[in-house]
Amino acid sequence: MLLSALLSTAHKFAPSQCPYTNIDRDKRSSQNSSQSKSQNPKSFHLFFSTQTDTEVCSMFAEENGLKGDPRLQAISQAIRVVPHFPKQGIMFQDITTLLLDHKAFKDTIDIFVDRYRDMHISVVAGVEARGFMFGPPIALGIGAKFVPLRKPRKLPSEVISEQYELEYGSDCLELHVGAVQPGERALIIDDMVATGGTLSAAIRLLERVGAEVVECACVIGVPEVKGHCRLNGKPLYVLVEPREIDSCLRCDCSPVAADVKKEECLRRKVMMCSSYQFSPEWAPN
């Protein structure tokens, strides 16, 4: 039985092709480019893959025992919203300001540690790059090791790779061979989730080396992930929803009214919700 398990694990180490070595990369890039150009640049939406794995309802902290907890509001308020970064129409959720607020940052880590302390987790896997900011303190708090899941050519030793598709291209995560042992219980950490593509790749990568993924956790999660995030049947725990700049983000303005007020809103660093939403060209994963 042990031999069978070892052979199965060895088979899983067969390397996946990353987009950087795939001969079809240029073809896909061309296709993705033409798809991108067909999108209305002022009509942005969050896309969800039609090729979903087993769906699982996401758990937002407020709906899972922390309703009314003032720490969640403080965490949300500590996250800065940067309009039009890295490109026009994107509401960037900047967690660096959360890191500057030592109390809000500590509250973030404490909530995760309280949740996972008694789940017998031995591995906390952080997704590059912002997962590296939250993963290590959580690992220390629950007595687990931290393992980075990195982009291609960042890890110096032998790696196992997992390719995954994004709405507008492909990417790849890598893990050091031997960093995670078969049978270890793992938690995956990232800063934000929208479509779940990156987290799903992280799950597959850890499962290929024989780990048991207990749960995925993110600081920020768009409301649409509730019941729609393709995470291979694994639970997802999220602290807060993306911040907005102003209440006019959820106004019911007509497109005409939105155009009239757009300059005024932009001067106040506010975007009209009927004109701009999350962009599929740079959606967090």
Rank of each mutant, 00 (worst) to 15 (best):
V82A: 04
K12N: 15
S274C: 04
P182T: 05
E215F: 07
C18W: 10
F146Q: 11
E184Y: 08
Q77C: 04
E184R: 04
P41H: 00
E224N: 07
L6R: 03
L239D: 03
T50S: 06
P136C: 01
M271A: 10
F60Q: 12
V180P: 15
F47L: 13
C251F: 00
R150P: 11
E215Y: 06
S29F: 15
Q17T: 10
S36R: 14
F44K: 09
S161C: 15
E128P: 07
K262I: 02
I90Q: 00
V238C: 13
S161M: 13
G131V: 05
R267W: 03
Q93Y: 00
I220Y: 07
A14C: 09
K269W: 14
L155R: 02
A186I: 01
P83D: 01
Q181I: 05
G197V: 00
R267I: 13
E165P: 08
D101M: 04
P156D: 05
K27A: 14
R130N: 12
G169V: 00
V240R: 10
Q277D: 09
D114N: 12
S16L: 05
C229K: 00
V209C: 05
P15W: 04
L100E: 14
G126R: 01
T198A: 07
S4R: 14
I79H: 01
I79C: 01
D252E: 11
L266P: 05
P19K: 11
V56D: 07
D69H: 09
N64Y: 11
S33V: 02
K261E: 01
G210I: 14
M1V: 12
F44P: 13
A257E: 12
R267G: 13
P284L: 01
I109N: 05
A74C: 10
E207L: 03
P148A: 05
V240Q: 10
Q277I: 01
M272P: 08
P156H: 03
L100P: 06
D69Q: 07
L166S: 02
K269Y: 15
V209R: 00
L206K: 00
L199K: 08
V238E: 03
C218V: 14
G233V: 01
Y276P: 00
V219E: 02
L155F: 10
I79V: 09
G131M: 11
R117F: 04
C251N: 08
P280A: 00
A217K: 07
L236G: 06
D191S: 12
E128L: 13
F48S: 10
P284S: 01
T108M: 09
D118K: 02
V240W: 10
Q35P: 11
T108N: 07
L239H: 06
I121C: 06
V127Y: 03
G221K: 01
A211Y: 12
G210T: 12
L98V: 04
Y276E: 05
C216M: 04
K27N: 12
V147W: 09
T9V: 02
P86E: 06
R117D: 01
E167W: 06
P284C: 02
Y237M: 05
I121H: 07
R204Q: 15
I203A: 03
